[in-house]
Write a protein that binds this DNA or RNA. Structure first.
Lengths: 342, 342
DNA sequence: CGTGATCACGCAAACCATTGCAACGCGCGC
DNA sequence: GCGCGCGTTGCAATGGTTTGCGTGATCACG
């Protein structure tokens, strides 16, 4: 039923090989025949069978992406970037939700491996060893995870954190809490690293809590802990947690930002529209998705170009309404010190 | 480099056909040889080449899904359901974002058509004619769009709206606003239909506004119009708009729910955690995704089973904190009547 | 012991597009 | 006039899997 290359060949009075060349390497066939072939192909609505093509070329024209949690708008932002950039290059994209489970992640990549030219793994929960092993089975690109010899797009979380610290210090804060996300998440490690370095320079004391689930509920849970410690500012691992913090603080009658400043990471849509609008670090989600695909495709299309396989993307602090001068910033209230001091 | 069926055959001392049968129709091969084959396959880590397989079987083992807007959590919920159900049946899934554009939608489906066994189109913006034409090029299933001879999973928006109306009427509301979503969206038409029917029965006057963009900004814009009309309750097309309404009402100093009740549709995560928590109609997003895949696969796997191609999913009103007795419900404030009365 | 049925397995075709190689025709140069 | 080269095209092999058909073997029954 579907029209094959032979149907086109017959109608254009040429062989199948000529049709193939007319469509892919058109400079190899005479102008007049090429036109005849193209016309025939169009009239018949011919579209090459991707299975047959990939059987012989060894390439599929597909890529895959696996994310840890589809419910987190951060990853759907990435998805948009990935899909747009892939489509632009004629690639279709498989997706799968790893559900924050390392073994599911690995299984998904392996399942995809046979029918894609490569896959981008977003903020993977899998171990270094697992990822290296996966890199052997298909072309791999990471997003927000640094591994020596595997290409990756990386968002500068540490730099974003530095901006946060400078912002809080300038507002007169001396003691703030950091609510950790998952311990093994590269983003969390980076944020913590950036935090510690910047905090030392700014003479800001940091108490750490967690790790927590990087979700709304995690923030709710964490808020009470931070509150008990007497900090004047809370930095959450991400916006989802920050929203949880905001919600809990409101319930407990703590005024934001007058009595407590709150900062998130990601700059989700909801960060801008909640009340009060959340001060947060904008992560380039779509750009990250695009960059990862760029890296992946340049790895696939031969071009083992040097320039190192890691691309860094900048982040920016967006100051909104959840940060303000520290309460009693000229005579700081003594900290009770219930959290771990970094 | 990759291990083929012949490698397995050689190692197991049988022909390739036997290997193929041992893996797919195992009852056709003797137990002892089957074990030998399976062992060899496992040792070699053999995985059939999907391209070669689909070349001959004509099936790909893939399905596609296209959604109107990845940024709307409603659709990512659907995505989760689709992916889970597909994976459970051994299918992989392509996704694409139609960006609320009918022509993009159609192009995406056509592009997928060659490498999928079918696609589910979610709340399509394409016209009936376009969809029928697409149904000719691949196996199609719709989600939240009713078209006579095309299978579809449908969420009972009208029923949800009936529950909303009864709820508001019971609270003493007499005049409420409905903020339309996209005019051509089936869900919007259904909600309006359910609204009009139920409102008549409940003697509730409804004024309609819009259509608006079914997003936060649309709700912000709509809130002022509804406010000017003097209604005591606002029903938004979806939660995103309802959140916009809430935000705008707060800005304008209108107390919710004391001075104004607000209802949304979808039951997004954010509806539960915003302040005050939103009364809304829960739409079965994941279940809808699963049902659509069920329908699609049962259509693909032959089984042209009767029972009609449409599956209805129930919806439930979730009463939270944005609805309350109408202000002055014993002596209703006269309406100024700026909106269109339905 | 012969005949027929049943079972297990191998052979080869088929699916469709791509591509190396060869053939063909033509023009040009020697 | 002959050979060489080039541009254009076709032939045939290739890729990995599935499947219809045929063959050989085993077994039971008459």
């Amino acid at each position: 039923m579907p029209v094959t290359i032979h149907d086109v060949a017959q109608r254009a009075q040429v062989s199948a090989s000529t049709v193939s060349r007319a469509l892919s390497a058109s400079h190899l066939v005479r102008g007049t025949t090429r036109d005849r072939v193209l016309a025939a192909a169009k009239e018949l609505g011919y579209q090459p069978n991707p299975a047959a093509r990939s059987l012989i070329t060894g390439r599929t024209g597909n890529i895959g992406i696996v994310v840890p949690d589809l419910n987190n708008p951060f990853y759907t932002g990435v998805l948009r970037g990935v899909q747009a950039r892939a489509r632009q290059s004629g690639y279709a994209v498989f997706f799968a939700d790893g559900e924050e489970d390392p073994v599911a992640e690995e299984a998904l990549v392996r399942a995809m491996a046979r029918q894609v030219d490569g896959v981008v793994v977003c903020a993977p929960f899998a171990s270094d060893a697992q990822l290296r092993s996966l890199a052997g089975v298909t072309s791999l690109t990471l997003l927000n995870r640094r591994l020596r010899d595997i290409p990756a797009a990386l968002m500068d979380s540490a730099g974003g954190m530095r901006q946060v610290v400078e912002h809080l210090a300038a507002l007169g804060h001396h003691r703030c809490a950091y609510l950790n996300g998952p311990n093994n998440a590269w983003s969390n490690r980076e944020r913590r690293r950036g935090l510690r370095a910047a905090a030392t320079r700014a003479k800001l004391t940091v108490v750490e809590f967690g790790p927590f689930e990087p979700k709304f509920e995690g923030g709710v849970q964490a808020a009470d802990l931070a509150l008990a410690d007497g900090v004047t500012a809370i930095i959450a691992y991400n916006d989802l947690m920050a929203l949880g913090v905001l919600s809990r603080l409101a319930d407990r009658g703590v005024a934001v930002p007058r009595e407590m400043s709150v900062v998130g990471f990601d700059n989700l849509l909801y960060a801008a529209v909640c009340a009060p609008p959340l001060t947060t670090v904008a992560m380039p989600m779509e750009a990250g998705g695009r960059a990862a695909v760029d890296l992946l495709l340049s790895g696939i299309d031969g071009a083992t170009d040097g320039a190192g396989p890691h691309r860094e993307l900048i982040t920016n602090l967006i100051v909104r309404a959840t940060t303000a001068a520290a309460r009693g910033s000229d005579s700081p209230r003594p900290a009770t010190g219930r959290g771990r001091t970094a």
